[in-house]
């Protein structure tokens, strides 16, 4: 706690004793926000769990129509974007301005790749008549419950896609600010908590991919 340098002391807001306490408070605030996000997505995961138990067979059938290659590729894209984000946080702590800007742009770019693939996939779902209330057609045994699966699929991936979009926006603003040298000399708190958000969005997808695309065995 006593490692605060003169430059860092200038960053401390008046309600905090030192820079260490200020950084800890920012991270704690972000983790509490992420706990609310867990419960936000949790409602959808709960619906998924209940309906999967009740209509397990229909869910397995419905899931097989999803494009597992796009879903799996998107998982890899997000995992690699998380790696870049982790390095961005590291660069911000080391005061590497160019590296930080580049890594933030790289992370945002992979976020855009994810959204692009998701868009291609949604379009494919539409063409295949898998979108509920928009020409949904099902040849299999249980059309009502298959449609329910697709409601849940679009709600969960849609909410996740909104989070990715927000994340891309945050990353682009931070990249601009980083280029203007805003986060130098120990002022890297913002980058760190934005990183926590991005990694959280990645974690959500780590659950969505197997639960939606790999229901039962293919």
């Amino acid at each position: 706690m006593n490692t605060t340098t003169t430059i860092e002391a200038g960053l401390v807001h008046q309600q905090f004793d030192d820079i260490g306490q200020q950084r800890e408070a920012a991270k704690l605030g972000m983790w509490i926000f992420l706990a609310t996000e867990v419960l936000f997505f949790g409602g959808l995961f709960l619906s998924y769990t209940v309906y999967r138990f009740v209509y397990g067979h229909a869910f397995v059938e419905a899931s097989r129509k999803l494009d597992v290659v796009i879903g799996g590729t998107n998982t890899a894209v997000l995992l690699i974007s998380s790696l870049l984000m982790a390095f961005a946080v590291r660069a911000s702590k080391l005061d590497q301005r160019r590296m930080l800007t580049g890594l933030l742009l790289g992370t945002a770019f992979l976020g855009c790749v994810f959204m692009l693939l998701k868009g291609v996939e949604y379009h494919k779902d539409y063409v295949d008549h898998l979108v509920p209330r928009m020409g949904f057609k099902w040849e299999g045994a249980d059309p009502g419950n298959a449609e329910l699966f697709y409601w849940i699929y679009f709600a969960m991936t849609g909410l996740h896609a909104i989070h990715v979009t927000v994340g891309i926006g945050i990353l682009l603003v931070l990249a601009l600010l980083a280029w203007r040298n805003t986060f130098s000399n120990g002022n890297h708190n913002t980058i760190e908590i934005a990183g926590l958000y991005w990694h959280f969005v990645d974690i959500v997808w780590c659950f969505l991919f197997p639960l939606l695309y790999l229901v039962g065995h293919r």
Partner: peptide
């Protein structure tokens, strides 16, 4: 403190899911 905050969200999610399933199952 951060460990606690990280675990708290997961704990509430587990309560939500396990109590609901105790009914459905």
């Amino acid at each position: 403190l951060l460990h606690l905050a990280a675990i708290a969200g997961v704990m509430w999610l587990l309560i939500l899911i396990s109590l609901t399933l105790s009914d459905f199952l």
